[in-house]
Structure formats: structure tokens, C-alpha cells
């Protein structure tokens, strides 16, 4: 499934589209506070961009852009961010995931919550991104001979 697509149009368009998808994904993640969106959706888009690379650029190129092992690292990192945000408020005496206790004493609780949500959404996005690519890589590299 992961091989280079023989065709100039597809190659060029996909090269152009991938960054656009990724920017849009960032928008989705960050704009989740005001409109439907957030980490899951954005993460899925990010993953989609990588999958597009995998479909069109072939192994060599797309593995250079996004190594197969990076999926695990990203997924773990995203989850780690989530957990650490939670534990950060624990460290300051609050409840787990109580963003009002985040270590940034100058801001008001609601502002802290606002940014807390943002950080958490970013963590989710990383996890979703990494995991979807991992699943694809696992299944995709196996189905070549099927």
C-alpha cells in the first residue's frame, strides 16, 4: 500500500496539499473553543496528511518525513502531555486536571482553564495523530502481499 505513485499531477498536488491540511488541522485544534473542532478532529487531519504522503510519496520519502517509529513516540508524548498537565495541578495541591491550579499564578482561573483546555487538546491531537499513523503503518505494511 505504501509505494510511490507514478504520476506527476498526483505527486505535485499532494505535495502542495499536505501542508495545507496540516495548517487546517492546527486551525481545527486551536479553534475548538469557538466552533466544533478540537484535538480528535485535528489529530485525525494531521494523520490524514501523513497518510497522503504514504500513499503518494512511497516508503523512502515518506519515512524520511515521518519515520515509522515516530508514531509511538508522538502518541506517548501526547498522552504524557495530558497526564503531566493533570499532575501539574496535583503538584500544586489541586485536583487532577483542575486547570485552575496550573503553575502560572498570574492568570485568573478561567483564563488558566482556557489555556489548559488548549494544551490538553494539543496533547490529544498528538496522540490521535501518532496512533492513526501507527495503525496505518502496521496494517499497511502487512497488506502488501494480500
Amino acid at each position: 500500500m505504501i509505494h510511490r505513485y507514478q504520476g506527476v499531477v498526483v505527486e505535485l498536488v499532494s505535495r502542495a496539499v499536505v501542508p495545507a491540511i496540516q495548517v487546517f488541522a492546527l486551525y481545527i485544534i486551536t479553534h475548538g473553543h469557538y466552533s466544533p473542532g478540537g484535538g480528535f478532529q485535528g489529530g485525525a487531519l494531521l494523520a490524514a496528511s501523513i497518510l497522503l504522503l504514504r500513499f503518494t510519496q512511497g516508503r523512502k520519502e515518506s519515512y524520511r518525513r515521518f519515520p515509522p517509529g515516530a508514531g509511538f513516540a508522538l502518541a506517548a508524548l501526547g498522552l504524557l502531555i495530558f497526564l503531566l498537565v493533570g499532575l501539574a495541578s496535583v503538584a500544586r495541591g489541586g485536583s487532577f486536571l483542575d486547570y485552575a491550579y496550573l503553575p502560572w499564578p498570574w492568570a485568573s482561573p478561567e483564563t488558566l482553564r482556557y489555556y489548559g483546555i488548549l494544551v490538553v487538546e494539543a496533547g490529544i491531537a498528538l496522540t490521535v495523530w501518532g496512533t492513526l499513523v501507527v495503525v496505518f503503518d502496521q496494517v499497511g505494511t502487512r497488506t502488501r502481499d494480500v
Binding site: F72, L77, L80, L83
Partner: peptide, 11 residues
């Protein structure tokens, strides 16, 4: 937490 650490350390 340790599951995540275990994945990262395992890499």
C-alpha cells in the same frame, strides 16, 4: 504514566 514511560523507554 508508567505505561507511557514504558513505551517511550522501550523505543
Amino acid at each position: 504514566l508508567f505505561s507511557v514511560i514504558s513505551v517511550l523507554a522501550g523505543i
